[in-house]
Design a protein around this nucleic acid. Sequence first.
DNA 1: CATGAATGAGCATTCATTCAT
DNA 2: CATGAATGAATGCTCATTCAT
Lengths: 215, 215, 215, 215
Amino acid sequence: MGIRRARNGNTPPRRDAEVLAVAARLFAERGYLGTTMQDIADELGILKGSLYHYISTKEHLLFRLIEGVHHDVGQVLADVASAPGLLPLDRLALYVERQVQQNLSAPQRIAVYYDEMDKLQAERHRFLLCERRRHQAFVVDLISAAQQDGAASRERSARVMAHCVFATIIWTARWHRSDATARDRIAKVCSAYVIAGLSARPRSLGDTDEASPAG
Amino acid sequence: MGIRRARNGNTPPRRDAEVLAVAARLFAERGYLGTTMQDIADELGILKGSLYHYISTKEHLLFRLIEGVHHDVGQVLADVASAPGLLPLDRLALYVERQVQQNLSAPQRIAVYYDEMDKLQAERHRFLLCERRRHQAFVVDLISAAQQDGAASRERSARVMAHCVFATIIWTARWHRSDATARDRIAKVCSAYVIAGLSARPRSLGDTDEASPAG
Amino acid sequence: MGIRRARNGNTPPRRDAEVLAVAARLFAERGYLGTTMQDIADELGILKGSLYHYISTKEHLLFRLIEGVHHDVGQVLADVASAPGLLPLDRLALYVERQVQQNLSAPQRIAVYYDEMDKLQAERHRFLLCERRRHQAFVVDLISAAQQDGAASRERSARVMAHCVFATIIWTARWHRSDATARDRIAKVCSAYVIAGLSARPRSLGDTDEASPAG
Amino acid sequence: MGIRRARNGNTPPRRDAEVLAVAARLFAERGYLGTTMQDIADELGILKGSLYHYISTKEHLLFRLIEGVHHDVGQVLADVASAPGLLPLDRLALYVERQVQQNLSAPQRIAVYYDEMDKLQAERHRFLLCERRRHQAFVVDLISAAQQDGAASRERSARVMAHCVFATIIWTARWHRSDATARDRIAKVCSAYVIAGLSARPRSLGDTDEASPAG
DNA sequence: CATGAATGAGCATTCATTCAT
DNA sequence: CATGAATGAATGCTCATTCAT
């Protein structure tokens, strides 16, 4: 009864991908609840009822979107984890750069991933939340390792700093507006910012850089 | 027209504030569109219709919430701007600390402020967006000043770094879960992370720690 | 339990009459259903709840209003019926003049009387409808009498003409806008129009007046 | 936005017209505000929500109804204005007859037109009010012309008499109850009544019939 | 595949009325 | 008399989803 989306090779799933793309954009712009099936159908130039040839449920459409992002993020993680011969902080730099690049190349999907995950069914939500925690653990572990070899500041909580790193990465999808050439530059800046932010020798108020003209 | 909220001093508008608090919580948890007036009324133990003694519109309720946050943020900005005798980077540290403290003391209101602002009426939305840009300009200017006196890295875009600073601050409201005693600690960590992240001499990949002037 | 409106003499029922007046105006302007108790209370400068010291029910308020008009109309009818020594058509002229005068002196109450009667409870509605039919019979009878003595056209239905007479009278309350001095003039014009309209020798298409320059 | 009503000719919009007809009847019987969408849906045997396939708004439904009447009235006016070789008073007779016929053939739509116009949006209301004034001017002008050629009484205000003519016409839609064969008769009676009512030599009180030139 | 009428549950909002203070 | 918080039923409207054609 349920509608199968499994295409068997020769029929190109063009329309299908288009539905996902339009949904990603609208969900990002107006939010999942703020987007109606009518909106999506209008954008595709078909009728609301016809949408159900491509999807089974609005919630399932959201799931497929988020599932895609989750898969991509997993890929980055795997790549970064398996890159040979890197010190923890360098591995973190690579991780930040890769993540930001990905965020900037499809900011809408990322925004949906972070903002609308809680609209999924309880079970799917739980699964993804669990995955996200593994993702966090990966970064916290890298920071801890960097703290142990003296590269990262030992005086600040690894967990809190991990959140700061996530913040830096995730937020890019929010303020960035499709300037494709700038992607690399932004990724580098973020990476440098994060690495410097994690580095040893925290600055406290009044503790100015010796390079500064403060007396 | 509209509900007269002008209390004459001695009768505390208890229920009124309660409505705002419940709405803030629910809007933060389920989103503005995901929260129904029924939900809010249920939480308050009154009927849906009775809610309209305290508010005129769901949208206006959101506005009052966001207006409150906007006012608080303005206060922090004014305080930071007028603190005497601080170098730009120190002023930024103060700014981050104050903002994070505020975010952590009422994370729900902050989350609503950043996530639901676009659900406001066009005019109100425009006004707040404009104010937010002034807020951004304040931070970008501080960073530029720090770049000029050599305290902040000149090799990275002030605008992009400003976004990183915002990210660090805003995201705290998202992952923090009401551990009151931890507030100060988190604020300090964030501030240190940001300041280090902005500081001169960005680390590039492979640029290990011993190159830094840390002792 | 129900609220008594019977004032016992010494306390002037000023506020009470004011409520009726305001209600008449608002019901006429916006319709019975288009007027809220809040509207009436606002206009009186009191709170919605306080209104219920003066009335028991919105519907009862309407009833009191309509009851008043009904009483006044009955008075006119009695006066016209008892005026001595008038031919039927002259009696009709008197009737029209008196009715129009009354309509113009309180057009709002009349408008309410004709437009909102069907919003009354079934029983009250039936009673007033019955009274109105007696009123109609009175006019139809006068027209029939005029037809029999040759003063009114025998070629047209007395019942239809009676409706035309009512139309002329009632409609004045709708288009008239409070030009007090004009009342008499309008009443005379209407009366003359009606009497001429009823008179013998109907004009048919092409049957021009001999005074007209038609060839 | 809004519901696409553009039918391409061959498929008759049966249900659509049915909605309009039912709405006209109910609005006439219970008033616009006294009629709920539920009432209309019940009468059509569909669910309340399904109604919104045919209309976009209750107010827009009212507008379409009134727009239709307005169009029909405009047609009558054009026909009457362009009928060749008629004296002013004869043109008025034609006008009254045509209008009454129309009123009696669809009394509900007419009742809605006159009673509920003020429930329309400000802009639509203004437009129709303006059109109605043009309509009034047309009749006043005809009466004035009749006064000048001596066919209509010069002793009574053309404007007031025009209102009396409107009254006679409009009221028919209120008291008439769908006796189809009677339409012509009623239209003739009204027309004759109006023409006689307008004619020269007003009767004053006590001015009995023998003074008139009737044989 | 596509259509579009229909469903049915749900939502924000209104409003006459009550009642403890 | 007056207040104003509360009620509870109803209203116009939305929207994801279904299904016969």
